[in-house]
Amino acid sequence: MTTLPIDKARVRRSFERAAGGYDAVAVLQREIADRLLERLDYVRLEPQRVLDLGTGTGHAIGGLQRRYRKAQVIAVDFAHGMLRQARRRGGWWRRPQCVCADAEALPLVDDSVDLIVSNATLQWCDLPLALAECRRVLRPGGLLMFTTFGRDTLIELRQAWSAVDDDAHVSPFLDLHDIGDALVRTRFADPVIDVERLTLTYATVRELMVDLKTLGAHNATLARPRGLTGRARLLALEQAYEIHRGAGRLPASYEVVYGHAWAAEISASGRSVTIPISAIGGREHSVKPAP
C-alpha cells in the first residue's frame, strides 16, 4: 500500500474553514451517504450504539436515528466547525452526541460500538491505523460500513496537471484491492468491497476547483507545491483539461468505493468465528449511478 503522506494539520484546517459553506456544494457526498444508508436496509442488526465516523456536517445522522430509534448515535469528526454544524441535526429532543477526535485515535473504550458508518472520510486517514481503531471499538459481531474514494477519483484533473508539471496537485487515493487487504490485516471478517463511478460536470475547470476548495478538499500531501499557482500555469491546466470536454461540459470522475466488514464473534473457546452470511438480508441490491 503506497500513498503520499497526508498533512493532517492541513486537512483539519481546510475542513474547519469549509464547514459553513460545505453543504452548499456537497452534492456528491450527500448522494453517496444516502446510498450507503440504503445498504443498511439489507443488514440484520439492532445496534445500541452507532458511530458516525467523520460525520462532517452530519448529513447521515437523521437517517441513522430514524433507522435505529433506540440507539445512541455518536458523531465524530476532527474539525470543530463541522461538529458545530452536525450538532444541529436531529430533533431538539434528540441531538447527537458529538465528539471531536481523529479516526486514527478514537477516545472510546474497546468493544463499545455496535455499528460504525463512515462516509467519504477514510481517504484522509492513515488507513491501517483508522481501521485498527474501528476494529478495536467494535463489539464482537459489530459492523463497519463505509465509503471512500478510489484511485481513479479526479483522474481528469490529475491528468491535466501532469501535462503542466511533475508536482503532486491532487491528493492520492487508494486502490480498492489495497482497501480490502487492509481490512483483512486488521482482522475484520468477511470484507466486501464494490465500486461505482459517478461523474459531476462543470462548465470550466475553475468551477471545479472552487467546489473542491469550498468542500475543504485541498491537496493535502506533504509533497504538495507550496507556492502560489500563477496565471500561466492555470491557463495551461485549463487547456490540458479541454481534451475531456464532452457535450459542452468538463467531467470530474469519482470512483466511489463501498465496503463493509464484521468484527468477528468470539466463541466459548476464545477463538474468533466469522459472521454467517445469514446475518445479511437475502435480497440482491444493485446501486446504479445517477443519470
Rank of each mutant, 00 (worst) to 15 (best):
residue 106 L to C: 04
residue 238 E to K: 07
residue 175 D to I: 04
residue 236 A to V: 01
residue 138 L to C: 07
residue 246 G to S: 15
residue 164 V to L: 00
residue 151 R to F: 10
residue 51 L to R: 02
residue 131 L to Y: 00
residue 209 M to W: 06
residue 193 I to H: 06
residue 278 S to M: 10
residue 277 I to G: 14
residue 261 A to N: 04
residue 83 L to T: 02
residue 85 Q to A: 09
residue 7 D to V: 01
residue 276 P to K: 09
residue 192 V to Y: 09
residue 70 K to Y: 09
residue 96 P to V: 07
residue 33 A to M: 06
residue 291 P to F: 11
residue 217 A to S: 08
residue 85 Q to R: 14
residue 197 R to C: 13
residue 11 V to Q: 07
residue 83 L to M: 01
residue 18 A to G: 02
residue 186 T to G: 05
residue 171 S to I: 02
residue 38 E to Y: 12
residue 238 E to R: 08
residue 11 V to G: 00
residue 239 Q to P: 07
residue 224 R to V: 03
residue 252 A to R: 00
residue 286 S to E: 14
residue 232 A to Q: 09
residue 214 T to H: 07
residue 179 I to R: 01
residue 115 L to N: 06
residue 85 Q to W: 03
residue 243 I to V: 15
residue 184 V to A: 12
residue 14 S to L: 05
residue 20 G to T: 10
residue 232 A to P: 03
residue 103 A to G: 11
residue 250 L to K: 05
residue 96 P to T: 06
residue 216 G to C: 06
residue 83 L to K: 00
residue 278 S to K: 12
residue 120 A to N: 03
residue 109 V to T: 15
residue 70 K to G: 15
residue 253 S to K: 08
residue 148 T to C: 09
residue 42 Y to L: 15
residue 254 Y to Q: 01
residue 180 G to A: 11
residue 241 Y to S: 00
residue 102 D to F: 04
residue 277 I to R: 15
residue 182 A to Y: 03
residue 283 R to L: 15
residue 145 M to I: 15
residue 39 R to C: 10
residue 37 L to Q: 03
residue 4 L to K: 11
residue 212 L to G: 01
residue 110 D to N: 15
residue 265 E to L: 14
residue 38 E to I: 12
residue 5 P to G: 02
residue 4 L to F: 12
residue 160 A to K: 03
residue 151 R to M: 13
residue 151 R to P: 09
residue 245 R to M: 08
residue 105 A to G: 10
residue 104 E to N: 07
residue 232 A to D: 09
residue 155 I to H: 10
residue 49 R to E: 10
residue 272 S to M: 11
residue 31 E to N: 14
residue 200 L to M: 12
residue 51 L to F: 01
residue 159 Q to M: 10
residue 238 E to V: 08
residue 152 D to M: 11
